[in-house]
Design a protein around this nucleic acid. Structure first.
Lengths: 144, 144
DNA sequence: GCTTGAACCTATAGTGACTACAGGAATTAT
DNA sequence: ATAATTCCTGTAGTCACTATAGGTTCAAGC
């Protein structure tokens, strides 16, 4: 007999939530587990492994769609791994862009904050700075 | 007579979209503009300024709720600006955490990719690395 | 003045990735 | 045996938009 456990235990062990697990099942990322006599889900360590994979990949910022692709790939072990590699590479590209973008925002918020002298709203630089452009990336110009 | 312009022109000038502008009106971030004889919205430069403020703050990562708070604050110019300052400060904190988090992910993806030798899926390190923990921050341990 | 096509209108539904709730049934602890 | 907890399904809500349908108005060319 194999060790099985409830959805609550799986949630606890994986650091996720019961609802999230059911959600992953509903979108087909987690296989439907066996049920006990009372219709409750019974999970095996293989479910834990799959869930850990999903959670980790999501944590890394991959979309559920990317995760689905990786799972599909892993079910075809004799295919070349260029595709999995490509997914990771695209993700790295994306992460780097997000970092660069956030650093701009950080600088602008710092600038915004350092100019605040804690007077009244009327002379508050935070709101003023937010109303202006600074290192802003959107391309717009006031209507003439 | 004041210069007025259509929602399309406002979208173009601000670098946003017609639908987004109507959405901001619907959630009360943008005041309802006047309408012309044919029920079409006519905007003034003041609308442009407000919209630019919203878009810029959103760009900086503020939630629409935070933007709403800032707008409310700006309508009370004689209040102390500590509140506006606090909103920006919380946001900076948040941005810094996101950067730190993304840098961990970047390192892990780099590690993942550098170990890929382009064999078959069966020996692919990308999927393997994603299944494991590395610099992962979620707290979980396999079920015993 | 008329026609055509672009831009506008409202209302509703869809997105992603969950989260929360209602109203029960099953399990576990005492 | 009873009470508390956990589980079930199904539906609706979240955020910040985006898209679509089906209709009206506007601006330009003839």
């Amino acid at each position: 007999m194999e060790r099985v456990f409830s959805i609550g235990k799986l949630a606890e062990a994986s650091g996720s939530k019961v609802e999230t697990i059911r959600y992953y099942e509903s979108i087909g990322l987690l296989p439907e587990p066996e049920r006990n006599a009372g219709n409750q889900r019974r999970y095996t360590p293989r479910h834990y492994d799959r869930l850990a994979f999903i959670l980790h990949a999501r944590d890394l910022g991959l979309s559920t769609e990317a995760v689905r692709q990786l799972i599909d790939l892993s079910l075809h072990p004799d295919m070349p791994c260029r595709d999995a590699d490509e997914i990771a590479r695209r993700q790295l590209e994306d992460v780097r862009q997000r970092i660069a973008r956030l650093k701009l925002l950080e600088a602008e918020l710092e600038r915004t904050l350092s100019s605040c002298t804690h007077g009244t709203i009327a002379e508050c630089k935070v709101i003023e700075a937010l109303a202006q452009c600074g290192a802003c990336e959107r391309h717009h110009r006031p209507p003439r």
